[in-house]
Design a protein around this nucleic acid. Structure first.
Lengths: 230, 230
DNA sequence: CCGTCTCCTTTACGCCGTAAGCTTATGGCG
DNA sequence: CGCCATAAGCTTACGGCGTAAAGGAGACGG
């Protein structure tokens, strides 16, 4: 205390986790190294190992911290509205933390039977079964919904990355660059050019709307299936 | 020639590419390093750089080699049947080369306007538009279909990896281990346990069938949308 | 026989995760 | 207060990564 007042409060697992998430949000998961994380916390890399077992565990905890925020609304009686809200909130969170989606998709070290991911799975399956879905239909419905939530979002993030990579290349504005590429490909790939134009349009549906388009397609299909097999 | 007859035929870009794909198929993409690839070809790592610009380009070429094999059937007049075949063939290929899916999803260095990925996109968009989809509906339909093809497959591969990680852990058979975990989680997560049981059943739909379930849900929904907006 | 060109090797740099062992600060206790 | 066990953080080191830079060996046209 006398020496410097530079006594920083000691590290905690939570502080490490929070900083790691902040760093990954800012610079991407590939920029998250133990050395850089230590630096961000004013500490050497090896000090982190007092608080996390290894990088894999840290990353798993980061993903859990995101999935934990998934909304699992049980106040909503309609199964489709409940699942819709859950899916949309999940999508929002995964877009907010773009590194989480790919990592959640590959369960890495499935921490046996616990954690937020499992709670979310149980909730989704329960809502389906309680809504009257047969075990067989709930089985497939779960796969389709879960894969849409994580799969579509990862797909969307991939395309967002591609655009970001483009604008990093030149000083040119994205719009100019995109317009040039569009014209370049129009002769050989007219439909792709049309599609690209739609993306550039001011009123183009964004990722969120497209996520919901697919989600509603799936939910509608599931409703119909449930009726057909009832 | 006199010295040893050990004159191996020189490396080519194609030979490097083929070996890289074989290595990734066998040991996973994370085990593919320039040093290991060189070793597999009987050559030092740096020699590879005479034939590929860098690892990123190599990986991009690997992905292209897979996407190139996508079937884009134009002999099939029905749009839904054509897209169905394309999607299923793509799914097969991506399961066969499990490393490709995640890499294709994140376009990495979009090689401007060429390559098999672009050809596939153009084909899919064309089939939709020629089937009478409006530009707006084709826009969303494309997103949903493409994200299902790559997103669901990646999702499936992630779960397959998780299972593989499990069986690597113990000498125990997967069935025994799974049964034990199932019983462990049944009290707190009964629906998840039920779902797990379904996965263990001998006649459980496999990944391929589940992919088609979601695909048909989407295709049916798109048909209905097209009619509704016609 | 001599360039020169092509293919491949060597060496080295700066990253990475982390094992092992060390130093230093902290807090409880006499 | 002094003392010391313990916890927190630091240093060093290892093997692996992608790849820049420069070197060498064999083939080949002159």
């Amino acid at each position: 205390m006398a020496t410097k007042t530079r006594r920083r409060r000691p590290l905690t697992t939570q502080r490490v986790l929070d900083r790691a998430i902040a760093l990954a949000d800012k610079d991407g998961i590939e920029a998250l190294s133990m050395r850089r994380l230590g630096q961000a916390l004013g500490v050497e890399a090896m000090s982190l190992y007092k608080h996390v077992a290894n990088k894999g565990e840290l990353v798993a905890a980061m993903v859990d911290a995101v999935v934990e925020q998934f909304e699992l609304p049980d106040d909503e009686p309609a199964w489709d509205a409940a699942i819709r809200r859950c899916a949309i909130r999940a999508h929002d969170l995964l877009i907010e933390h773009p590194w989480a989606c790919g990592l959640a998709l590959v369960p890495s070290d499935s921490r046996s039977v616990a954690g937020p991911r499992v709670r979310y799975m149980e909730w989704l399956l329960r809502r389906l079964r309680e809504a009257g879905f047969s075990p067989e239909l709930a089985y497939s419905a779960y796969h389709t919904l879960d894969s849409h939530i994580f799969g579509f979002t990862l797909w969307q993030l991939g395309h967002a990355d591609a655009i970001k990579a483009l604008e990093a290349g030149d000083g040119e504005s994205v719009e100019e660059l995109a317009a040039r590429i569009l014209e370049q490909m129009r002769p050989r790939y007219p439909y792709l050019a049309e599609h690209g134009e739609q993306h550039m349009a001011a009123d183009a549906p964004d990722g969120k709307q497209e996520f919901e388009f697919g989600l509603d397609l799936i939910l509608d299909g599931l409703k119909r299936q449930r009726r057909a097999r009832a």
